[in-house]
């Protein structure tokens, strides 16, 4: 990340900075405490949670995780989630990049209109179209299949991808493409050899965003998939909240297992997100 903003001229920390730090630390506690509390609950037993919800676990009940993993078939669910989200990611980025490239760099009458058209897609709540979509897909035999789930996921990922990538493509200097054209590069060459490789950060940001969005998506997955072997992670999570009894500790253990991949991926790449946003979304 580029060095930014004004540095204080003096070496000692000013009182105002101290105040800011205190504020930021309190805030950080507010952010982390509930998550850590969830971790603590997931290691207790149900009776212990009811008796003293905020006490740290006396005995670590790691078996909650084992039970959650086996009972909830989290392994299979993890595979399904990775598969569905992975394919969605690749396809939506490719299609999104193509459309974004045409909108951002090519010259045609409706490019602005097309951009707006895709953006309107962001406003459609998925609930509205669930029924017509499901009925249609059922007729085509696309329900209860992971492939069928990918199609709406890809579609709903497109607006965000196009929005972000258009910004990235627009920010690329035009001379690059002109030079390439002079070298005899056609439009497809420009796209594949110049635009795509130069847009890595853009892919990274939009990819991460759509991946996270789909990873957490519940409603479509719930309605579309019936076969227990094809369910995604969020759907399996809901089963820990049973109709007549709630098993809190296993529920939290399952939630932790489910969010762990996101947290790990996030911690590894969070800096790139900002970097990407800096160069991309700003110009969107």
């Amino acid at each position: 990340m580029s060095k930014t903003v004004v540095k204080s001229n003096k070496n000692n920390i000013k009182p105002i900075t101290m105040v800011i730090y205190i504020f930021l630390i309190i805030l950080a506690v507010i952010y982390l405490a509930p998550l850590l509390w969830m971790l603590s609950v997931s290691l207790k037993d149900n009776a212990g949670v009811m008796a003293a919800p905020f006490a740290l676990p006396e005995v670590f009940h790691f078996e909650n995780y084992v039970q959650a993993w086996t009972l909830g078939k989290l392994g299979q669910a993890l595979i399904n989630s990775v598969l569905v989200c992975g394919v969605t990611l690749i396809v939506s980025m490719f299609f999104g990049a193509m459309a974004a490239f045409a909108i951002a760099r090519m010259r045609w009458k409706f490019s602005e209109a097309m951009h707006t058209f895709f953006l309107i897609g962001m406003m459609v709540p998925v609930h509205c179209i669930l029924i017509p979509l499901f009925v249609r897909f059922a007729k085509l035999g696309l329900t209860n299949s992971r492939f069928g789930l990918m199609i709406p996921y890809i579609t709903f990922s497109l607006p965000m991808t196009i929005f972000l990538l258009t910004g990235f493509f627009k920010s690329m200097p035009g001379e690059l493409f002109e030079a390439a054209a002079i070298d005899g590069c056609g439009i497809y060459g420009c796209f594949f050899r110049i635009a795509l490789p130069l847009c890595r950060t853009g892919f990274f940001v939009s990819g991460l965003m759509t991946f996270i969005g789909n990873w957490n998506e519940l409603l479509l997955a719930m309605v579309f998939i019936s076969d227990p072997m094809k369910k995604t992670l969020p759907v399996t999570l809901t089963y820990f909240v049973g109709p007549y009894a709630t098993n809190y500790v296993q529920m939290f253990a399952a939630i932790i297992i489910a969010i762990a991949p996101t947290v790990i991926v996030y911690c590894m790449f969070s800096n790139q997100i900002v970097e990407g946003l800096t160069t991309g979304a700003v110009k969107g």
Binding site: K73, G86, I264
Partner: peptide, 15 residues
């Protein structure tokens, strides 16, 4: 993807 496929392998056991 390597990370996630590692998770996948772990998951396959329960299939």
């Amino acid at each position: 993807s390597v990370l996630l496929s590692a998770a996948m392998v772990a998951g396959t056991m329960t299939m």
